[in-house]
């Protein structure tokens, strides 16, 4: 089946060509050609009907999914988010405390909202253990790393988009400071290394 075939009028003009110039005055050929004139007429009616359908669908409050649809989507998202990585903060005798990378990232992003012209994007956090435990983890809990060991520290890798107008070096410095303060205040540990990558400029 020739799906690429563009329909043509008897005069040889393609519908596509008439469509392309529908908003302009008719060409000398179109002014004389009856087939072109009636095709233009029909396509103009279609254009109007299309615009009117687009507008009314857009504003038609009955053409929206029910709230239960969003709830169902968000419930799945919430249920599946628990797989995010955990970082151990404390390992005392009366029990351990760990924090999800998710929770740390949200503190970091929240801190970034205080800096005008910066939109925080992806955030990845690593733990570099100190020299005293070369084998890394002594806990059998899988992908849990420890931040509270002597010498171990967080390495935060944050990617951001910046407004075109911001002065990047100075803004990145104050962002780094802000994140460092927030990690101390909101989590209770020191922030370690904060790597910031400006990966994009966003339109204002």
């Amino acid at each position: 089946m020739a799906v690429d075939d563009v329909p043509r009028l008897g005069c040889g003009r393609s519908i596509d060509r008439i469509w392309a110039t529908i908003d302009q005055p008719p060409s000398p050929h179109e002014e004389k050609c009856e087939q072109c004139q009636s095709a233009r007429e029909r396509l103009k009616k279609l254009t109007e009907a299309t615009r009117s359908l687009r507008e009314s669908d857009l504003h038609n409050t009955s053409l929206k999914p029910r709230l239960s649809v969003k709830n169902a989507i968000m419930n799945v998202a919430r249920a599946e988010i628990r797989r995010s990585r955990r970082i151990a903060l404390h390992g005392k005798e009366n029990g351990t405390t760990e924090i999800s990378e998710q929770a740390l990232s949200s503190v970091i992003r929240f801190a970034a909202t205080a800096i005008p012209g910066i939109h925080a994007r992806r955030c990845h956090i690593e733990i570099r253990s100190g020299g005293n435990d070369p084998s890394g983890e002594d806990r059998p809990s899988g992908n849990t790393a420890t931040a509270a060991n002597e010498g171990a520290h967080l390495i935060i890798n944050l990617r951001v988009a910046a407004a075109p107008s911001v002065e990047i070096p100075r803004t990145v410095d104050s962002l780094r400071q802000r994140i460092s303060n927030a990690i101390t205040a909101c989590v209770g540990i020191s922030a370690g290394t904060i790597n910031i990558t400006v990966e994009d400029l966003y339109d204002v």
Partner: peptide
């Protein structure tokens, strides 16, 4: 783009 990037990190 920033919203998508955050969602990629699991930001609900």
């Amino acid at each position: 783009g920033s919203i998508v990037a955050r969602a990629q990190d699991g930001d609900l």
